[in-house]
Amino acid sequence: MTFEPKIVGFLCNWCSYTGADLAGTSRIKYSPNIRSIRVMCSGRIEPTFIVKALYEGADGVLIAGCHPGDCHYQEGNYKALRRYRMLRMILPGFGIEPERVRLEWVAASEGERFANVVDEFTDQIRDLGPLKVRDSLERILSEDAIPELEEAMEESGDANEA
């Protein structure tokens, strides 16, 4: 059986959730791997939400907000972008590929684009394979594995510098 990733989507109410709804009303088909959570603005999305989703079992997290300049709350999407960039810098330190978290701008009129983004992201995560972050965290944190932890940290540090 092939690996089917679980993906959590955080969608802003005004653009991306509406765009996802439009994909529905237009009956555009896309992979069923995503489960979306609606927030009012992408600026509401805290890095902890993403980490929580990964910890609970998500193999990938999609954040979607209004296009730059289109935010219903003027500039929440820019804040989302900054937090996203910051989070992506931190993820390798925990052995999580930053590609597992993706930010996309999806407008209320872009139902087809939403479907394409989900399909493409699902394929990408399927290629990356399962995350099982809780397994690895628990293993790393168990006493025996401390040298392994240090090694992992060094590696990710190198990766960041490169």
Binding site: A20, A23, G24, I28, P32, R35, S36, A115
Partner: peptide, 19 residues
């Protein structure tokens, strides 16, 4: 939302019910 973001966008099958 099991219509716009579920039954309308996925094919008939166990995955749709699971979602």
């Amino acid at each position: 939302n099991i219509r716009e973001q579920c039954s309308w966008v996925h094919l008939d099958g166990a995955e749709t019910t699971d979602k």
